[in-house]
Design a protein around this nucleic acid. Structure first.
Lengths: 350, 350
DNA sequence: CCTAACAGAGAAAGCGCTTACCGAGCAGGC
DNA sequence: GCCTGCTCGGTAAGCGCTTTCTCTGTTAGG
């Protein structure tokens, strides 16, 4: 495959020459400028651009204007439906505003997250959205925050998804409340012996769900013994192994709550492999309401989050274009996104 | 949240001044330049950059160098596991090469695809990867191709995923062959009365799978009547409705093949809702081997594609960094990615 | 010692675009 | 009819970088 002649793309200069006008006029005609341009001229320029197949070089435009149209999105794992749904929301919202989104994945690795943030800053994005970030306890937390703070100092906007990360904007998910409601609903269904597959300890979101769940149980006077909690890594396999661990410990459990659906799916599989029927044998519940859980058997009880909306709002929060769509936006303090407990076959009444 | 003073980010100029060297030296020290720089100077510059929290402005660098480090990825729907897995592959491979990826979604809409390609060109990406594109029959096809051709003329590289799109590079998936093998395997299992939920007619990938499947059946002397083929849109709901349609037509079917797993999941659900047990009643098979299908009941028979690898290779194909990883790379003609029929519970022996 | 050859720092000219600023042309007012 | 005041092209100065080219300071060879 020998490199073809490869002329470089037409520049504004070429367009101006082709149209027989000045560079300035060409620029004004093509990119929405405040200044008016004689319609006849504009026409000529547009046609010339057409003819040459010209597209504005966004990079050059960015350096000239000193601002870009890029949104950077950091997710832990794009193949995870939780994140890909959020990404869909961000991308759609961004496109509507003529913004372009750059995605990077951090693989749930703190060091990599930090490196990625740094690298992404080179793009001078208008907005940086962090989903699935660990903002708790890690040695890197401070570095991350200072990196982000400096990003905001230089005119960027950051928004977090899920856990509160003041002073940065956040699309707050009421993880604690959602889990609490779920616990209450399950207790009311008659479950008593709970175990939970928690997430990584350093992830606030995971921790909140765990704590909220315990709170809900407490309201019904049900304790959650520490040995009934195993920590896993948010993956299906993690959930699978977590369930095995629980089973091996021989505890008398009638419901397993996994703090995300992906792990819950693993739990269902582990139970089945151990000869226990999920649902009728041991109840299973998850969190997120990813599409899959409606299709497995039994369908999973979970807590629904409007993931795509979450992505949308994360962007709007940053661009300030949050036209009010029903979700109360009480000034500064962002109201959490409402979640909803969805009871399905995996948790029949006891 | 009043806008803070918002100083602009440190520039190379600032760094140079801070380090007491010239702009040129600063540039050379920070970004791998061919020219050598006295180590003592380099040190000073690096430290100064550190101190100022400087990160190279990639945009400015791009305009100066005349080339970017961006990869543009177009997918039909990022929330679809097929695409998000591919995206994961692309992103990982790109990160390894220090490239940044921009994702746009086209929503399976031709006009939008074309617009998106145009918009993305403004970013002057090094590479443009198209997955799930319609390259057949649409009125826009020619426009798309000419847009892409012109992109390549100006130094870009495009690579397609799935269907051959000569003269552009392609990560060829042997859709026809994979479907043929699947059909053969199913026929050998004893199935005789087939129906298929095909994809949109204008999508080559969908069409190939349909045709390959028919070929496989033909090898066993089994016909596939046109009324046994319904077209749907690659979504779960599409699959659901397709199956309903088939059922309503009252055909005597013992196996439904949906040309992608997402629709197959819909089929399973539709059958169940109609009181027919998927597997023991009517067999179901899909294509892609997305994670979900292993977890539903019955687990779905399907054709496995190493999706992440596909994404990886799409990038490598374009950047020319295809270190040989076992997949034969016979010079120009790209060998198709090998697929594998995976028989599971949804197609028990008859 | 002197000259040739070579490093390697710095000055400056771009890269493709935006945007003051300038100035020509024209309309209207007195 | 002359002046004021618009309107709207064009000129040119950047934006933050890279890179060529110039030029000085060293080193080495004779």
């Amino acid at each position: 495959m020998s490199a073809p002649a490869s002329k470089s793309p037409a520049t504004l200069h070429d367009v101006a020459r082709e149209a027989g006008v000045s560079l300035a006029t060409a620029s004004r005609s093509l990119n929405g400028s405040a200044r008016k341009v004689n319609e006849a001229y504009r026409q000529r320029v547009v046609e010339a651009a057409q003819r040459l197949g010209y597209t504005t070089n966004l990079f050059a435009q960015a350096v000239a204007k000193g601002s870009t149209t890029t949104v950077a999105l950091l997710v832990a794992d794009i193949a995870d439906p939780y994140f890909s749904s959020i990404a869909a929301g961000v991308i759609n919202a961004a496109n509507e505003e003529g913004l372009v989104v750059t995605i990077a994945v951090t693989g749930r690795d703190t060091q990599r997250e930090l490196d990625t943030v740094r690298a992404l800053r080179g793009q001078r994005p208008r907005v940086m959205i962090l989903a699935g970030s660990r903002t708790t306890g890690s040695a890197y937390e401070e570095q991350l925050r200072s990196e982000l703070a400096s990003f905001e100092d230089t005119g960027g906007k950051v928004s977090f998804i899920s856990q509160d990360a003041a002073p940065f904007a956040t699309v707050l998910l009421d993880n604690r409340g959602g889990a609490r409601d779920l616990a209450v609903a399950l207790a009311e269904l008659g479950y008593r012996d709970f175990a939970v597959i928690a997430g990584p300890r350093e992830i606030r979101t995971a921790q909140d769900r765990l704590e909220g769940f315990a709170e809900g149980l407490a309201e019904h006077g049900i304790p959650l013994a520490p040995e009934r909690v195993v920590h896993a890594d948010f993956t299906r396999d993690g959930g699978y192994r977590g369930a095995q661990e629980l089973l091996a410990a021989g505890a008398d459990v009638d419901l397993v709550f996994a703090v995300n659906d992906v792990m819950a799916v693993g739990v269902v599989s582990a139970l089945r492999d151990a000869g226990i029927e999920p649902g009728s044998g041991i109840g299973v519940a998850g969190y997120d309401d990813i599409p899959t859980v409606r299709d497995i058997t039994p369908a999973l009880t979970t807590v629904r989050i409007p993931l795509e909306d979450v992505g949308r709002r994360a962007l709007q929060l940053a661009t300030g274009s949050a036209y009010d769509d029903g979700v109360p936006d009480s000034g500064e303090g962002p109201a959490p996104i409402p979640t909803e407990t969805v009871l399905r076959g995996s948790t029949p009444r006891r």
